[in-house]
Simulated scan of single mutants.
Amino acid sequence: MKHQNERAVALILATLFLAGSASDVQSQQSNSTAKNNFELTVHVTEIKHQDGKVLIGVYNKSDGFPKELEKALLTAKTAPGKPTHTFRGLSHGNYAVVVIHDRNNNGKLDRNLLGMPKEPVGLSNYSVIGISNPPTFKTASFTLSSIESINIKLNQF
């Protein structure tokens, strides 16, 4: 009888432990989903030409920013006539955005011999980009903590 009671107690404890683990997993999944429910809408302004595509890159770290679009966390292409894109499923954190008006559709920012952009480009938190104001992730970054919308002005060079 004593062994049956010990087995029953062990079975009850195991069931409670498994039920608690399952609810912890569900709680973690809910928290994970809640963390990834932010949106960032990027509106591009000062588009002077209607040729090519507008490339938008969202970075969550400095690696590759702003020159290597392939290292961006998320990217999008839009038509110059519809220069707005919404990125969904983002979590709370620091982000920086680069926008390139890829006028010749080659998928990259063309530069002159001095390394200056030959195509219009814009960055979050920058109204003017130039030799005296080179872009950095630290300056371009902002904290996303809700559903947000930003305007990025394209700079002509």
Rank of each mutant, 00 (worst) to 15 (best):
G52H: 05
P120E: 00
F157Q: 04
L74M: 14
E68K: 13
N133H: 02
K35I: 06
E70V: 14
G89N: 09
F17W: 08
E39Y: 14
G52T: 03
V98N: 03
A14Y: 04
T136A: 00
L11E: 13
I147F: 03
P66A: 13
R88F: 12
G20D: 09
T78H: 05
Y126Q: 00
A22C: 10
A8F: 13
I56L: 10
S23N: 12
V58W: 06
L109K: 06
S127F: 10
Y95P: 03
F87W: 11
N106W: 04
L123D: 00
K118E: 10
K48W: 08
F137I: 02
V99E: 01
V97S: 01
N125P: 01
H92Y: 13
E119K: 08
L13M: 14
P135W: 00
E6Q: 15
I152Y: 03
V98S: 10
G81C: 09
R111D: 03
G89K: 07
L55V: 09
M1Q: 14
H101C: 06
E70D: 15
D51F: 11
G107V: 09
D24K: 14
E148A: 04
H49P: 05
I12H: 12
L123T: 01
R111S: 03
H43L: 15
N60Y: 04
T41Y: 08
N104W: 07
K2I: 15
G57T: 06
D24P: 08
L11K: 12
P120Q: 00
D63L: 12
A96N: 01
G20C: 08
V97Q: 05
I56H: 02
P134E: 00
T139I: 06
L40N: 01
H43S: 14
I129G: 01
R7L: 15
K108T: 10
L113C: 10
A96S: 03
S21H: 07
V42K: 07
S62E: 13
D102K: 08
G89H: 06
S62K: 10
V54S: 06
T136Y: 02
Q29M: 15
L114H: 05
P66S: 12
H3C: 14
S62A: 13
A140H: 08
T75K: 14
Y126V: 01
P134T: 00
Q50V: 11
I131L: 10
G64F: 05
A140V: 01
T143Q: 11
T33Q: 14
I100S: 07
S146M: 02
R88A: 11
V54E: 03
G20Q: 07
L55W: 12
N151E: 12
T33C: 08
I131S: 05
K61D: 04
